[in-house]
């Protein structure tokens, strides 16, 4: 993976323009993830394996498999994202670079937003891109596959956002990963309901646009609120 995002100043914006902080954080985290590709691939493999366990456990009953497909794919995606959440802040916290980011000339919420987008590119987007393949395995039809893909495209960024707050709050806590799951999973419920619900409604030929619109609304609201909340959580953890 070659990272070609140029964070060097082109001379058009001042050195400490806030939007450059977003690019600095994004480019940095993407580059770091590219150095440990294993973690990205492992999370993706986890997603595939978990979703594939259900046909094996339930048996080749195609009507039933198709019926549970949206829920299974969504739960698998949710757990896969959950596994990658500690990567958001824990490494930076351990090696001291999180302090440097907090003291950066760029505002912390902008940096946090950059980190969240980088996390989604590495942990959420691959799941959405792969989901039609898994959907085929469950016998979903093309219209349903498109809705599944769309629901994950809208929903996985929200998973990264909510997870960022949880990951920041559990920094430095012993047994933090289980606490993180307990903290974050209940908050994932609305996303799960709307996401899986959209596909289910497409399956019974109902209008699924309400569910997708709600996911989009959550995404926009999260984009506004979460960077500030997660930045506040990082500050608390550094204290």
């Amino acid at each position: 993976m070659k990272i070609a995002i140029d964070v060097q100043n082109s001379g058009e914006t001042p050195d400490n323009a806030p939007e450059r902080g977003f690019l600095v954080a994004l480019a940095r985290d993407v580059k770091l993830a590219a150095r440990s590709k294993g973690e990205v691939i492992q999370a993706l493999a986890f997603f595939i394996v978990v979703a594939s366990l259900f046909p094996l456990a339930i048996g080749p009953e195609s009507a039933l498999l198709k019926r549970i497909a949206p829920g299974v794919v969504w739960v698998a995606a949710l757990l896969s994202v959950l596994l990658t959440l500690p990567r958001l802040f824990a490494n930076d916290y351990a090696d001291g670079t999180l302090e440097q980011l907090a003291l950066s000339v760029y505002p912390l919420p902008v940096i946090v937003l950059g980190k969240i987008v980088a996390h989604w590119l590495m942990a959420g987007l691959p799941l959405a891109l792969l989901s039609p393949l898994l959907g085929l395995q469950f016998g979903l039809e093309s219209r349903e596959l498109v809705v599944l893909f769309a629901s994950l495209m809208l929903g996985t960024p929200v998973l990264s956002m909510i997870g960022a707050i949880g990951a920041a709050l559990t920094l430095g806590v012993r047994g933090g990963s289980i606490l993180l799951a307990l903290l974050v999973l209940p908050l994932y419920i609305p996303v799960l309901i709307f996401g899986a619900g959209a596909v289910e409604q497409a399956m019974v030929a109902l209008d699924f646009s309400a569910n997708l619109s709600l996911l989009g609304a959550i995404l926009l609201l999260g984009g506004l609120v979460v960077p500030f909340a997660a930045a506040a959580a990082v500050k608390i953890s550094l204290d």
Binding site: K31, L32, D95, G96, T97, E99, L103
Partner: peptide, 19 residues
């Protein structure tokens, strides 16, 4: 103001192992 003034180097070296 603070972030533009203060440079902090802690006892961790603030280096990424993978860089």
């Amino acid at each position: 103001t603070w972030r533009n003034a203060a440079l902090y180097l802690g006892h961790t070296n603030a280096l990424k192992d993978d860089f």
